[in-house]
């Protein structure tokens, strides 16, 4: 389907990108805590999203402590928006098909009766 981003089918990637699209940038530990993943899982997820150009990682310091800040790129935000729009279309189509099937079943039952 048009607009669906295969990389975002994975829930962790989708959650990370959706979280980052809701803010300018977020610290690695904040994203990790929200997603309830380990450092290594988030690191791999961030690296894969970065490779796709959806995410940017910035290294910095707070005092002497190293910190990594993650942010969604413009391309990432656009990909997420398109992905969510495509999902909405799918959900709407599924709902319409479900209600049609329900209507058909009810008609069939009436004819049988």
């Amino acid at each position: 389907m048009n607009g669906l981003e295969p990389a975002l089918h994975q829930p962790t990637r989708l959650t990370v990108l959706a979280f980052l699209s809701g803010c300018q940038e977020a610290e690695f530990s904040v994203v990790r805590d929200y997603c309830q993943v380990s450092d290594s899982v988030l690191s791999k997820t961030a690296a894969s999203l970065e490779a796709l150009g959806h995410l940017r990682a910035r290294k910095g310091y707070v005092g002497k402590r190293p910190r990594t800040w993650l942010s969604a790129t413009r391309q990432g935000r656009a990909a997420l928006a398109a992905h969510l729009a495509a999902l909405q279309q799918l959900a709407a189509a599924a709902e319409a098909a479900g209600s049609e099937a329900d209507g058909g079943d009810a008609e069939g039952e009436r004819e049988e009766g």
Partner: peptide
């Protein structure tokens, strides 16, 4: 490589994926 507490890949329906993304975005905001 899946997250704890999150459903495995491919197990999400469009509605569940939308809800997941919506919750994440709302949490950041």
């Amino acid at each position: 490589g899946e997250a704890e507490g999150l459903p495995p890949a491919g197990a999400l329906t469009p509605a569940e994926a939308l809800a997941l993304a919506g919750r994440a975005e709302a949490a950041a905001r």
